[in-house]
Design a protein around this nucleic acid. Sequence first.
RNA 1: GCCCUCCUAGCUCAAUUGGCAGAGCAGCUGACUCUUAAUCAGCGGGUUCCAGGUUCGAGUCCUGGGGGGGGCACCA
Length: 505
Amino acid sequence: MSEEKNDDLEAVRAEKLRKIEALGVDPWGRRFDDHSAIADVRARAPEAAQPGDEVPGPRVRIAGRIMLRRVQGNVHFLELRDWTGRIQLFVGKKQVGPEAWELAKQLDLSDLLGVDGTLGFTKTGELTVFAESLTFLGKSLLPPPEKWHGLTDIEARSRMRYLDLFSNPESLQTFLGRSKIVSSIRRTLESRGFVEIEGPTMQSIAGGAAARPFVTHHNALGLDLYLRIALELHLKRLLVGGMERVFELGRVYRNEGISRKHNPEFTMMEAYQAYGDYHTMMELTEALIGNAILAVDGNYTRTIHVGPEGEAAPVTVDFTPPWPRKTYNELVLEHAGVDPADPEAVKARAESLGLETAGKDPVVILGELFEEAVEDQLVGPVFVIDYPAPLCPLTKRKAGRPEIAERFELFVLGMELANAYTELNDPILQEQLFRQQLAGLPEEESMAKMDEDFIKALKHAMPPAGGLGIGIDRLCMLLLDRPSIRDVILFPLLRPQSSLGSVGG
RNA sequence: GCCCUCCUAGCUCAAUUGGCAGAGCAGCUGACUCUUAAUCAGCGGGUUCCAGGUUCGAGUCCUGGGGGGGGCACCA
């Protein structure tokens, strides 16, 4: 029984754990059945007892983490939080009895606690659970972040997401929101008869997009493998196999830079519908994103802060479908002020914006001009349709107009949210386009291999189809109004922290 | 990979020209049965990211390293 002063926060909590054990209480808790969500308890406020009432309010049982503690002699006010909300507890020495009171005195911020009590209002009108008994559910051996500011350091929040989630309610809401979005997307697809499949993530040829893959190695096969960079080619094989409406919602990996909008692993949804085309996919996109936005908070409009720390004024975007369709060419004319069919004018305009044009294909210059002069202007939501064919090696050409590809991209606030094609199902043309694409690339800029098996699949006849891809992380950024992709990815990639003081390194 | 910038107590933040490293919260002791970031009195708490350098003196200046954030490039 040491009375020595102890300034070590961990040691103080460890000592409390020993005291809790000494009371005969398991400091790590046990199964705790039939407790209510705090939000549900709050909803019963109309039944709660008022200060003068003879009859106690309804009995409730809740569980959660102690977020705030106001000790007032023989009464402790605690604030308990679960993932639905927070509520005040009244713990009185007289009311809970001597044993529970001994336990109450050992409680720390951040401990987990179950409570049985009655619902009522305090004299100051705060909805409160008046505790009758306490069930200890978990000792926190480390001090929590500051009770008012929470954890603000972005690095710490990403590395210790558990702390971020329980000390920053808006962070928990963001990730619950992401879950609603993903679940809504699955519901919408399933309601339209799409089936979800799981393609291979380790592939010997990483195709379906132009991106640098990660390399891994299979020991027993003595084989280098790539992590997938897209879902596309395997889903199309399934179209050939007769899965007429098929989608995958999963992780893809691209070995490229990290930024506010890029994480090396991210979540894609790709859906393919046999006998559809890109117009079918536009309608599907409106349903998918429209339903997702409603699933978050029942409203089609969003106020979105563009850029870090909300530098610019927030922009309000209305997602009420249908959304306008504009052709690539008319947007170039509208925002860049040049005729896209006039290569010299396009080149001149690109150069006036400081773009390097020397030795570049006219269509590439046009693409760069579009990115530079048009994309940022697209507040949207707007479908940009009918792309120059050379930019789209996996896309069917418009009937009678081989220079135009039946493709759309959905833009909101200058960000590409969705990308869709009428899928190219001509194996001869597909093989030719692959060869052209590979011809210009250095050997290591891999993806750089012809996927012979995919071509073979097409030769067995793939139905004409519409295909759609949506980057789920960016969709979440927009719908949840978070400025960084790291705010919507639970565990974004970070460099390992240099371990100070650890030996053997 | 390049440029800019940040790293101080468990957490949130101060520290003038280079001059004794501070506050709030959290913690500890005491008072308090209706508080609301409770309040009041008292107490303890630091490898200023790391390693060097300049200096009588470095949290502050210089060099190198680590990690983060923003931008560029690559991409979605």
